[in-house]
Design a protein around this nucleic acid. Structure first.
Length: 218
DNA sequence: TGCCAGGCCCTCTTTAGGGCCTT
């Protein structure tokens, strides 16, 4: 697998445009199908955490008050991931917080995001739904700890990514999972991908535009 | 005044609407 950085934010809400801020971030670097580096930190953005968020995540006002500033943490995690391609579950959410928090420290994102949720809708169309927790149960992925904490969810997303690579290697004859392939997959037509994944047909070369770069020789 | 996310996908679509997913 191409080396990628998987990130997960915990936040005070759903939109930085509405003044919501990050409270915790985790990043794990996956290389050759295993996690080789990890970063995790709570962060203090100077904003109160709504009670329902504390109930959801377990992150309290006291915890973030003891944490380093959001600026310090975002600087560290940006250095940690460098220019590695980024991955998140429902990446549109993490991308907008990543961009908003980086903008506050005068930085911009040099790389693209790929989304495991969109890709999972293609690769696992029979899953009950495509929430991270549901997919983890559906595929019996290893337990990573309390859901809705950044490191647990980032690690779970990494496991999901590795499971997806195995599925794609078996069904599509890909040599390895790359970030461009993941992005192409999430944009591919549902019907095209499902035809390739039909259990009653033999493994089928992946018929999405990026295939020449990533297929293994037959 | 009243409301308050938004990107993406699917479909009974594209001059739109509703559901999913993230905190």
């Amino acid at each position: 697998m191409e080396t990628m950085a998987i990130i997960d934010f915990e936040t005070t809400g759903l939109s930085p445009q509405s003044g919501e801020r990050a409270t915790e971030i985790a990043a794990v670097v996956v290389q050759d199908g295993r996690i080789v580096r990890q970063y995790q930190s709570l962060m203090n953005a100077g904003i109160r955490i709504p009670a329902f968020i504390t109930q959801l995540t377990g992150i309290t006002n006291h915890m973030v008050q003891q944490a380093p500033s959001a600026a310090k943490v975002m600087g560290e995690v940006a250095e940690f991931v460098g220019d590695l391609p980024l991955v998140a579950h429902n990446a549109s959410f993490d991308r907008k917080f990543w961009d908003a928090e980086l903008a506050r420290i005068g930085r911009t994102r040099p790389q693209e995001f790929a989304c495991t949720m969109l890709a999972a809708r293609r690769v696992y169309p029979t899953a009950p739904n495509h929430k991270l927790e549901t997919l983890a149960r559906f595929m019996a992925l290893p337990d990573t700890g309390k859901a809705h904490r950044a490191m647990a969810d980032a690690t779970m997303t990494a496991h999901l990514l590795c499971h997806m690579e195995t599925t794609l290697m078996q069904r599509f004859r890909i040599a390895h999972l790359s970030h461009p392939l993941l992005r192409a997959l999430q944009r591919a037509k549902k019907s095209d991908v499902q035809a390739c994944l039909n259990p009653f047909t033999p493994p089928h070369p992946l018929s999405i535009p990026i295939r020449r770069c990533h297929q293994r020789n037959p």
